[in-house]
Amino acid sequence: MSNAPHILVIDDEPQIQRAIRTILTEKGFRVTTASRGEEGLTLAATNQPDIVILDLGLPDMDGVQVCERLREWTQCPIIILSVRDSERDKVAALDKGADDYLTKPFGIEELLARVRVALRHSTSRQGTQSKIVKAGTLTIDLAWHIVKRGDEEIKLTGTEYKLLSYLASNHGRVLTHQSILTQVWGPADANHTEYLRVYMRQLRKKLEVDPERPQYILTEAGIGYRFIADE
């Protein structure tokens, strides 16, 4: 089991540590825990984990700061844990390099889904990114810029395609408003959330079966969007 993915959990609450450790060990992961930021940073440096699960409310330092310090030397995926109503902190951590977030209390499926997505993205960073993303009846060919529902090609405008390809190539991951705006429109428009709202609506109309109840492009309230593809 020595090549099982290694997960470092940094959380000061023993109950949460216990629950996550039990669940993840059961699922075949190796788990290390730390209850303080400094301790977590040291363990991350010595153990080189595949994923870091980081609570934003640590007793000794700000979780966002831990994120920043980790990002100084490692690209390993960081999943942050935080309580409801701290959208600002979540967005700050995501913009500082965290990959995803989970709101406490969370279900086990959510945790495992995040871990799976994180592992996939960490391998795709190493060069094996798939060029075709499938979601339900949708097929998005990122190499040839073709989007199809079934066999029928969907016509997208340039901006719509740019937006969709950014979402699809990061499928499963939450993308903040700011990161999408910067990526698609450029840093100068990073605050124009209304662009995003309008284009998301157009995109949903073209892609979703029921645009009012989207299945593929999900809104993460107050944070951003997430594209859900088949695993």
């Binding site: 709202r197 309008v198 009012e212 109840r213």
Partner: peptide, 29 residues
């Protein structure tokens, strides 16, 4: 928590230009 935040005046809306139908849609979903 919301109530205590409202009571203490700490509820500061983080405004953005939003589309109302999107909000209603996601609530109903």
């Amino acid at each position: 928590l919301d109530m205590s935040r409202i009571e203490s005046g700490a509820l500061k809306p983080k405004r953005e230009w939003n589309i109302l139908s999107e909000i209603v849609g996601s609530v109903l979903a």
